[in-house]
């Protein structure tokens, strides 16, 4: 048995909707056994469209998908008993109780867990007798998750599993997903909560307009982003009063009211230069915020404009991107140490 064998293989995947809208435009990635892979993206980026193709719910317009070595669309019966999935919106008859819903689903699932086990996994035991229509949004999500886990799947697809959950429910779901992953379940997760991807994913990809804009481990993606320093200009001072920004390793800046924002790939050098200047001049930098590149930064930049393909944003997925990543790794470490706020 080769544990490195990809469980999910997606090659140049395309999806075109009836009106000619191309929702997925050549997406490729692999997920290894036991790995948790997150697909991030703004609304309409193509996350769900991509995931539905991998789940075998629709036939791709182009490209190839393999799940556990099979085509999920044409070899549905080979794949389905081994996967579990949760759609973005659960579909359960509103007049059935939670318990009846689980029993119905169990009757359709190979090797189903006992009802009590499925409900206790997601903390719905006490709601077993309640009609689905009376559940809160969060409880419906958890019922959906219980059904996804019913057949002890080898591969789990979670489409925005924590949307609509409160903070506590979200934490519990994350804990459960971590546990499943620890037991060897392969997970493909879509989310628009960045902390969810950062906290759970082994690797992630950010989709934009049907293409993968960035992919890598959360650390790699984060390291590809410039770090930021922002502070309030002291009264009577102007940006021109600072040491030349080039000499600090600052690659860009903007002024919003009294607040100055600096972008840099060399956070330690820029911060040291700035703080030394402040010390020497005897001014206080109010609202000082020094932070290394973040996933949020990466996400917002991609969402804002992908045509502005500067820095390492562009082709992280390719071999060229790998080179860029190793180049940035050292800096990422530095900036973590420097993470004062």
């Amino acid at each position: 048995m080769n544990t490195n064998e990809p469980v999910i293989e997606v090659t140049d995947l395309r999806r075109v909707y009836g009106g000619g809208f191309e929702a997925v435009r050549g997406v490729s990635f692999e997920v290894a056994r036991g790995e948790l892979f997150a697909l991030l993206g703004t609304n309409g980026a193509g996350k769900t469209s991509t995931v539905e193709l991998i789940e075998g719910l629709a036939r791709p317009a182009g490209g190839r998908v393999r799940v556990l070595g099979h085509d999920p669309y044409t070899e549905r019966s080979a794949v389905r008993p081994r996967i579990g999935l949760m759609l973005q919106e659960g579909g359960f008859p509103s007049e059935l109780t939670v318990s009846e819903t689980v029993r119905m689903w169990a009757g359709c699932t190979s090797g189903a867990r006992p009802e009590s086990e499925a409900l206790s996994l997601v903390g719905l035991t006490r709601r077993a007798g309640v009609r689905v229509k009376q559940l809160s949004g969060g409880e419906k999500r958890r019922l959906d998750l219980a059904l996804a886990l019913l057949g002890r799947p080898e591969v789990l697809f979670l489409d925005e599993p924590t949307t609509g959950l409160d903070a506590e429910g979200r934490q519990e779901t994350w804990e459960l997903v971590r546990e499943l992953r620890a037991q060897g379940t392969t997970v493909l997760l879509t989310t628009h909560y960045l902390e969810e991807a950062e906290g759970l994913a082994d690797r992630l990809a950010i989709l934009h307009a049907g293409r993968i804009a960035v992919s890598g481990t959360p650390a790699e993606v984060t390291a590809s982003q410039p770090s930021r320093i922002s502070f309030e200009l002291p009264t009577g001072y102007f940006p021109g009063d600072l040491p030349p920004l080039d000499s600090l390793g600052v690659t860009g800046h903007e002024v919003v009211g009294r607040v100055l924002r600096l972008r840099t790939d060399e956070l330690q050098r820029a911060a040291t230069g700035l703080l030394t200047w402040a010390e020497r001049t005897g001014v206080e930098l109010r609202g000082l915020d020094i932070r290394s590149g973040s996933l949020e930064e990466a996400f917002l930049r991609i969402a804002r404009d992908v045509s502005e393909r500067d820095a390492a944003t562009a082709d992280q997925a390719g071999p060229a991107g790998n080179a860029g990543r190793t180049g940035n790794a050292g800096q990422a470490q530095h900036s973590e140490k420097e993470h004062v706020a």
């Binding site: 048995m1 080769n2 064998e5 393999r66 070595g69 119905m104 359709c108 090797g111």
Partner: peptide
């Protein structure tokens, strides 16, 4: 072929039949 290796790891499961599934529904 990847299919063979991956399939080999599948745990034995009791499978449901078409009649069983339709009855449940």
């Amino acid at each position: 072929m990847s299919a063979a290796t991956v399939t080999g790891t599948a745990p034995a499961k009791s499978t449901v039949t078409a009649v069983g599934r339709m009855t449940s529904l």
